[in-house]
Design a protein around this nucleic acid. Structure first.
Length: 795
DNA sequence: TGTCCATGTCATTAG
DNA sequence: AACTAATGACATGGA
């Protein structure tokens, strides 16, 4: 159940005083899931027309909604709704607002996800501007529009730097990028351009536009799904802050947050996979909305629990690898059990996606030629039984998420959806040369894989969604291809040739999963292996629209690329993990980490992008490559019957069992225990440092927050004092006037001046610090003096 | 060469 | 008792 709360973090704060006096202890539980859950429930209610209290009429189309939601998102609705208290409010939007422009905004209000295409983005923006939708302009449109409609292509010039240099420089570079991109990231609107469920984008907001260039691959006319902005909750705000803060980029997962790891796509898969995987789990957003995102589904989605037609279809159409999936199920059974609580969400999401797609189609009147890939992607997180590795690409096994997407490029998926089959489906058998006979994977491999995933989950790479990652990859590829790479088509053509070059590690893993359905898009990627982190082939067709984005800015300009370095590093780390296995397992295999040939060197983009801090990575990182190499070498010297990677990947029980079953010398045992202990401690040290820095960051945030609050209170106090002074002045003048005009008797004046008189209370010196009291009190004082002086006279 | 930073490792403690 | 995680302290390497 712990992972059921993966997206939540427990913020239990106990003040020192409370510790001293337990009776006065106060605890605060803060759930970052709650807000997302509420929003999702509201969206569900909206779609069911439950508790809706407002009808928005746009171009004759009525939209039911909750006025509170609309008012919270839109200035326009805030104004309109606030003046109507009764039920059954019907608001007709101005003519400038179109239904097609409003509906995505409505969905955005309920889902934090804006679905749009290139063709509709301007319309949506116009509507958003009219309606005063918050949090969209700077974070979404301001970034995307120039990319969309830029007329000239500026060549990317990125420095090809050595891996080490990039790694070290990256944090600063990232910071500078952030600084130069304040308009996007520092708008303080809590908006972050993130990719969300690619499915939703595809199905809902990006109906294929006939005007778009045809995407020959998918058969779907060029879609231009853009990563939707995501409205922040508190966690998002934190994420934003972390984006601005390089340290936070690293350590935002720490301090209790990283303890709740999210199920994620492994970075390597996210990078390698030719398929757009489900979003990688907004984290807090970071682990932000668990329910909203597919975070849990990325990995935990039990294969068999998928409901809906997609899964069933997948199961029907893809039986080949079912057994393997079942095997994986067994391995990840624990995770699945833990994620059971999220499965419902995932199922709902599948339904939501489908429903949104239909809604979008209905609204747009355009029948979307859905890409099977995209369609399948919606289910990817669910890990349908059909989405087995047998039909998936290499990367699929690395990331459960990807498996479905890869595996279900089957025509059935499209048929089921009633859409014209996209190009993906026809990949089946298109390139038989790419297909590699299935080979069973060893339990050890899978065990390591599971471990790697867990560690990667822990690392927090999941916070970058797969869509975002893919966009970043694509963008990065734009950089790379400009420099060195041939066009994707050429690469694809040369795919079969890349097969033999596959290392000992990628071969077995890619081969078995490269089924006939993987097609040239997945197969090549699989064959390419980890070296194709930014391989253009890894881009799904739905990202072809990015080809039209003529980037003219640095990666720091791009919210998609921003922070990708971490993911890249993660991928490389995991790759290193495998490399270790290779090195020790196969013996004669060279360790890439040792030989110094890394992805970063192969790709300048990877190099630069991966230059970020890898602090999030657990297990083997490049920093520890030297150690890994030495470990591997020593393992070979000691003739260990298993690899170093296995030592680290095994669970405690498995590790003990392995040691029991093996007859190891004392030296071997010491070595194994040393390696394991150091690795664990290394990881623990990283976590510890993350936590520490994150705590510092949180405290800084807290300080800023308190300062802001203090300033606000001070200004409010000043205003109140001024109002008070004005009131006193008015009352004083009034008293003077009344006294002078009414010719009060001394007794009456005394009464007025007495503390029992309400008027005197108004002008009594309650606030000694308030200036001018003497002046204000003077009238009554004089009155009182007069009265007391006149008393003896009269008496 | 000294400093800063990130990281690994060890020792210790607590669960 | 063994193991693990967390954490402080120290060492090391790179910029």
């Amino acid at each position: 159940m712990v992972k059921c709360f993966m997206a939540a973090y427990l913020n239990m704060s106990v003040s020192m005083s409370s510790l001293e006096s337990p009776r006065s202890s106060q605890f605060t539980f803060e759930s970052s899931v709650h807000s997302c859950h509420v929003l999702r429930c509201l969206d569900d209610q909206r779609r069911r027309d439950l508790l809706c209290d407002i009808t928005v009429v746009v171009e004759g189309t009525s939209f039911r909604a909750h006025r509170s939601v609309l008012a919270s998102c839109s200035k326009y609705f805030t104004h309109r709704v606030s003046s109507h208290a009764g039920p059954g409010l019907v608001i007709t939007l101005p003519q400038e607002v179109t239904a097609s422009g409003f509906e995505p905004l409505l969905q955005f209000a309920y889902t934090s996800k804006l679905l749009f295409s290139k063709a509709t983005v301007m319309e949506i923006r116009h509507c958003a501007s009219i309606l005063g939708f918050r949090d969209l302009d700077s974070a979404c449109f301001d970034f995307l529009l120039p990319k969309f409609f830029s007329s000239s292509r500026a060549s990317f010039q990125r420095k090809t730097c050595c891996k080490t240099r990039c790694r070290r420089q990256s944090p600063r570079a990232e910071l500078s990028d952030i600084d130069t991109n304040k308009d996007v990231l520092e708008d303080d609107k809590g908006v972050r351009v993130v990719s969300d469920s690619p499915v939703e984008q595809d199905v809902g907001g990006a109906p294929c536009q006939s005007s778009q260039p045809t995407n020959g691959v998918t058969g779907c006319k060029s879609e231009t799904p853009a990563p939707p902005p995501e409205v922040n909750s508190q966690s998002d705000a934190q994420t934003d802050y972390s984006l601005r803060c390089p340290k936070s980029c690293k350590f935002q997962l720490a301090c209790g947050k990283d303890s709740v790891s999210l199920e994620v796509c492994s970075p390597e898969t996210a990078l390698d996979s030719p398929v757009v995987t489900e979003e990688g789990c907004p984290l807090p957003q970071s682990r932000s909305c668990l329910p909203c995102s597919c975070s849990g589904g990325c990995k935990e989605g039990p294969t068999v629990e998928i409901s809906g037609e997609n899964s069933s279809h997948c199961a029907q159409t893809n039986q080949a690898g079912h057994g393997e999936v079942e095997e994986r199920k067994g391995e990840e059974d624990g995770e699945k059990r833990e994620a059971d609580g999220e499965n419902v969400d995932k199922h709902e999401r599948v339904g939501e996606v489908e429903e949104r797609r239909r809604e979008a189609e209905e609204a747009s009147g355009v029948s979307c030629l859905r890409s099977p890939l995209m369609e399948v992607s919606s289910v990817s997180c669910e890990r349908s039984p059909g989405l087995d590795e047998g039909t998936v690409g290499t990367a699929s096994h690395r990331c459960p998420l990807e498996e479905p997407g890869l595996g279900h490029q089957s025509p059935g998926g499209v048929e089921e959806g009633g859409c014209v089959l996209g190009g993906r489906g026809h990949h089946d058998g298109l390139d038989p040369a790419v297909s590699i006979p299935s080979q069973p994977k060893t339990e050890q491999e899978q065990g390591r894989r599971g471990q790697g995933e867990e560690e990667r989950r822990e690392s927090g790479w999941e916070e970058r969604s797969s869509m975002e990652t893919e966009v970043a990859e694509h963008l990065a590829h734009g950089l790379w291809s400009d420099l060195s790479s041939p066009p994707p088509s050429l690469l694809q053509d040369s795919l079969p040739e890349t097969g033999p070059e596959t290392g000992p590690e990628t071969g077995p893993e890619t081969g078995p999963e490269t089924g006939p359905e993987t097609g040239p898009e997945t197969g090549p990627e699989n064959i390419q292996g980890s070296s194709s982190t930014l391989n253009p082939r890894s881009m799904s067709p739905k990202l072809d629209w990015l080809n039209q984005l003529y980037l003219t800015s640095s990666t720091g300009d791009c919210p998609f690329l921003h922070g990708l370095d971490r993911g890249m590093d993660m991928g490389m780390d995991s790759g290193t993990d495998r490399e270790m296995d290779r090195g020790t397992g196969s013996g004669d295999a060279q360790l890439p980490g040792c030989e110094g040939s890394s992805q970063s060197e192969k790709s300048p983009c990877v190099s630069s992008l991966s230059s970020g801090d890898d602090g999030d990575s657990d297990g083997f990182d490049t920093e520890g490559d030297s150690e890994s190499c030495s470990y591997s070498q020593k393992a070979r010297e000691l003739q260990l019957p298993f690899s170093v990677g296995q030592i680290l990947a095994l669970s405690r029980n498995d590790f003990q069992l392995t040691l029991r079953h093996q007859t190891l010398t004392r030296e071997q045992l010491d070595f194994v225990h040393d390696v394991r202990r150091r690795s664990k401690n290394r990881t623990a040290a990283r976590r510890c440092r993350k936590r520490k820095l994150d705590c510092i960051h949180n405290l800084e945030c807290e300080i800023d927050k308190l300062r802001t609050e203090k300033d606000h209170l001070m200004s409010e106090r000043t205003n109140l004092i001024q109002m008070k002074l004005k009131t006193w002045q008015s009352v004083s003048e009034l008293c003077q006037g009344v006294c002078s005009e009414s010719a009060l008797s001394p007794e009456q004046l005394q009464v007025l001046a007495s503390p029992y008189c309400p008027i005197s209370a108004l002008i009594s010196p309650t606030d000694p610090a308030s200036p001018g009291l003497e002046g204000l009190l003077q009238p009554l004082a004089s009155l009182s003096a007069c009265s007391s002086a006149s008393e003896p006279l009269e008496s």
